[in-house]
Design a binder for these strands. Structure first.
Lengths: 217, 217
DNA sequence: AACCGCTTGTGAACGCAGGAACAAAGTCGC
DNA sequence: GCGACTTTGTTCCTGCGTTCACAAGCGGTT
């Protein structure tokens, strides 16, 4: 399976492809067979021209004058994003947020499978969430090794996030999604991505108040 | 209180300011009095020059040859972000994720106060989370009006997110943070910001697999 | 009092993402 | 069979964000 296309896809495009994929799945379930870029862009909340440019990274996959075939495009994006391959993930920190992620059915249909839930609190160990049992943090390395998990999710308190990150990296995890409100340092070859819920809220509030000042109309 | 500075601050800068604020608070708690841009940038995970440019939007607030005074800079950023003003927020959808947000103490210290938790499921109504009682969704409009809440957070299932968004907007909420995996439409004047956890995971996985292909070393 | 080292703040160049406009291509109607 | 319409794929351009590099300024030292 050769790849004659430019092998790099911008990160912003990848994020939008995931959104398109969700919309296309909904359209397919609704029985739609084709869709034009304008409609798809409206459903995804983006500009039609930008959408077509995003799709052009996958090579030609539409029919001029008609639009895109829903099922075909969905499968094409699935293939590029690697949805059909199952990826083993471990999740550390089973508080409310960790429970929410472990319980979220949406991950399974996107190729992500949690193979281990870990926490340090004895009270949480043994809980069953989303078909898995919470295990003590000491077993982290063993599980990562045994399952070849490549993705780790950190939903611990900030104080222990760095040590968890170090242990994940040492155990061989190459991609880490961090929800703890700290900036993590990781060795080269390990990609850390941060999601900070309070920062999102802060930005939202700021643009809101700035709009009031800018447009006192 | 005049503002001779350019009154627009880039959104990307605002997001980083929130991160700097957190780091500065930690430094202040640790007893540090001054900090240089290099150290602060390392702690925040950004480029030193970019950090200085970000701070330049607030006007001069450092001392050349020395660095930044921790407490002063912290207070300056707090003022710009409006942390000290309390903002009333409502949260709709008290599942695992909603509970995690309602329970997260970090919001209170950033100027965000939840004044209403809502859910449609009778089983959840009456639960107490983070000092508040979950109320039926029917009371949403009344609470928003009474508290003048300006921020709404949606953590409902995707199917009902749009209707909740409509009701929030009608009730007068101007800023909405959406965690449901759908793209919401809102009238002009209402700012919707989306956080999609599965998209984050998807992007993380993609760059991880792309790195393997790109650098087979 | 003058020098030196350190750090900030800013100006310029680079690269990238986003938007608009246009040509290619395929389908539908006559 | 031919023309016109629709929609894609691409190209150009504009603006923003990021990075590098340097001048300005302050404290400490002699």
């Amino acid at each position: 399976m050769i790849q004659p296309r430019p092998r790099t896809i911008p990160e912003a495009t990848v994020a939008r492809l995931a959104v398109y994929l969700r919309v296309l799945s909904a359209l397919a379930d609704a029985g739609r067979s084709t869709v034009a870029s304008g409609e798809l862009a409206a459903a995804a909340g983006v500009n039609p021209a930008g959408l077509r440019k995003d799709l052009s990274h996958l090579g030609p996959c539409g029919v001029r004058g008609v639009g895109y075939e829903v099922a075909t495009l969905r499968d094409r994006i699935s293939g590029v994003l690697g949805v059909e391959r199952s990826r083993a993930c471990v999740l550390v920190g089973i508080g409310n947020l960790g429970s929410a992620l472990a319980d979220y059915a949406g991950f399974g249909s996107r190729g992500f499978e949690f193979v281990g839930l870990f926490d340090a609190a004895p009270a949480r160990i043994g809980q069953r969430i989303g078909g898995l049992t919470v295990r003590p943090i000491d077993e982290l390395e063993d599980v990562v090794t045994a399952t070849q998990a490549s993705i780790g999710v950190i939903t611990t308190p900030a104080e222990v996030a760095q040590s968890v990150c170090d242990r994940l990296a040492d155990a061989g995890v190459r991609s880490i999604l961090n929800f703890a409100p700290v900036t993590l340092a990781a060795p080269d070859g390990v990609d850390v991505r941060k999601v900070d819920l309070s920062v999102e809220l802060q930005v939202l509030a700021f643009v809101g108040q700035q709009r009031l000042v800018g447009e006192p109309a």
